[in-house]
Design a protein around this nucleic acid. Structure first.
Lengths: 177, 177
DNA sequence: AAATTACGTCAACAGTACTGACATAATTTC
DNA sequence: GAAATTATGTCAGTACTGTTGACGTAATTT
């Protein structure tokens, strides 16, 4: 691997750092944090033969019961075909049911069953525990700060999707959008 | 879809909320934030025929020049085979070079080339811009808070990997590990 | 000399994403 | 009312990233 037939570039031996004007520290932390954040539910899901995609569908159907297929596609930002497989499995295993739209009978409103709700909660539990642990010695102020940071990381056009959800007890309304 | 041959569960029409004792707000924000966080580099990578896996390899080789294949596998937590494919491509395209380990000649030390460093920077730039924008009206205190939160989200056993990296100018040392 | 380690590679497979095309039923538009 | 559009479902084919298990080679350690 030292003798190469083509003119290979010379090795750079110095590390890239934040000095280059780039936030490598947070970039890297975000990677590690998200990886571990998803690892707990992934573990549980494999018992069901499900993957991360099933989790996401289950999550949003529980968060916004009655949302249509089109709305779900828009939230997840995936294609119809990608959704079709996992949604079908979740329906076949009785985690989600479809109801014909009341106004528009072409639409399928998606609702969790008791089974689907239970699984959604089971998957969210370790994630919530992890979040609580991370915020252990943090007050409400810090918590709000984290939420604002994460929300600010989302593309502005898509932030509307986030606020669709029923307000929390403590109220997360910071502004009036 | 309304007539089913098996006894389907009844639809639950109420949304899951934070009242269930679970941090759904942050769980969801984390999903959206990470999705958009990775979307910018994904865009650039597709021009090279690369994927997210290439980005991660490139990132860590730039962050820890000279790390061995075994170390990289340990950081990424993927299998040898998963790494092999993308690493080979990065070497073939002259983004990364391998040098025989000085002490142990079985080892391959991985270094970025100028080309590899440039790509790593190009990929990190939009991510860093996004982070800066999200922290726009936040001070150094908030920044440290975000870092601590993200670090606390990582599995404790793995936190050591994070601190391998050269210290930042401002110093992120909170403690003396 | 034998066992172990670091790395590379091969075959086979799974999960999740993509594109593009086509079909059906329901709604909207002209 | 006929035509266009919309919501959904489905099919075929493909790409990327991950997995397991097996095998080979060179280098190091025991």
């Amino acid at each position: 691997m030292t003798d190469r037939s083509h003119p290979a570039g010379k090795p750079i031996r110095t590390a890239i750092t934040d000095e280059d004007g780039i936030d490598f520290a947070i970039i890297e932390l975000f990677f590690f944090a998200y990886r571990d954040f998803t690892s707990d539910p992934d573990q549980i899901l494999s018992d069901y033969g499900f993957g991360r995609a099933h989790h996401r569908v289950l999550h949003f159907v529980n968060r916004r019961p009655g949302l249509t297929v089109a709305e779900l596609l828009d939230v997840l930002k995936i294609t119809k075909q990608s959704l079709a497989r996992v949604l079908k499995q979740l329906i076949d295993t009785d985690h989600i049911v479809q109801l014909q739209g009341p106004r528009d009978r072409r639409q399928r409103e998606l609702y969790p069953t008791a089974k689907g709700r239970a699984l959604a909660l089971a998957l969210a539990r370790p994630q919530s525990r992890r979040i609580h642990a991370a915020l252990e010695d943090a007050g409400a102020t810090e918590r709000t700060l984290i939420e604002r940071f994460l929300e600010a990381m989302v593309n502005p056009e898509l932030r509307a999707q986030i606020d669709i959800v029923p307000a929390k007890t403590s109220g997360k309304s910071h502004g009036d959008h």
